[in-house]
Design a protein around this nucleic acid. Structure first.
Lengths: 150, 150
DNA sequence: TACATTTGTATGTATATACATTAAATTCAT
DNA sequence: ATGAATTTAATGTATATACATACAAATGTA
């Protein structure tokens, strides 16, 4: 595969900026497709996995839906519905917040933590395999992406 | 904003590879959210825009659904349904292929070309604004992304 | 030619994104 | 203290992704 021009059969781009946007969209698809096959056997979507990781990061401290939303990779996703899906699988608990009855306290369950532990190892090693870069290059990529977003 | 650690409130990552994957997913969301607001007034999705661009690249030569699919940024998207949506808006024509009746010849219409012309200018300048990098950095980012995918 | 296999497209279903709207609880202002 | 404004979460709807399956047309083979 290699170059984006070959991958999507587009000869040229307006400028490196426009090429970078297309390249990012394409690379995203490459990564997500890979990740999906990993999550599939566990009946979890990448987005649900991400919510579980956010909750575990709380170390038992309950979190609200809006707080999850803020920390999600996709700011437009619907944390409320994702939490509902996770609850149906007993991976999270959802309780009314005692101090503010609008809010909902969400905590990851033991079952959720167990699943995360198994999955995380697989995800981490799959990510390393997917990213065909040296450590230095990966670091540089992170710098460029951080700068890109301003 | 800046660093991915601050953006999603995650203190550390397993390694630069895993950080890069998360960074890419997050940056993708940043770009797509921006693009969506551009396409919205024209009642077009980024994916539909992409299909129109692929068709225009054919310079009038009819294209099949599977050929579009191969060249899309997201290989898992459903070109058949996207074409149907575009056809309902008279942006593409769809005709039975004379040499192989399984295939469908798809061509962009005048209306589609006109819309593309207007939109493309906006997209190109929006992309340049979104990507807060120097030309050199953008080139380097493209190299890293190409290499990342192996 | 007859039949199995492959190919191209469409469709079915579940999940997620995008964005608007609703409804309840809380906060703010008068 | 009362009503307006804001906040939090849930819901509604359209579009897209992900993947399985169906079906017709074409191809390969006995």
């Amino acid at each position: 595969m290699g170059k984006i021009e070959d991958a999507i059969q587009q000869k040229e781009f307006k400028d490196p900026y426009n090429k970078a946007v297309v390249n990012l969209l394409f690379t995203h698809s490459y990564l997500v497709t890979s990740q999906n096959s990993l999550f599939k056997p566990h009946d979890l979507s990448p987005e649900q996995y991400n919510v579980l990781r956010i909750l575990r990061g709380q170390n038992g401290v309950p979190t609200t839906v809006s707080s999850i939303q803020e920390r999600m990779l996709n700011k437009m996703s619907n944390a409320s519905r994702l939490v509902e899906k996770l609850k149906m699988k007993d991976l999270v608990k959802r309780e009314e917040c005692p101090t503010d009855r609008r809010q909902v306290d969400i905590v990851i369950t033991e079952k959720g933590l167990d699943l995360l532990e198994v999955l995380e190892k697989q995800v981490e090693s799959a990510n390393r395999e997917m990213v065909n870069l040296t450590l230095e290059e990966a670091n540089h990529l992170n710098e460029l992406l951080d700068k890109l977003r301003g």
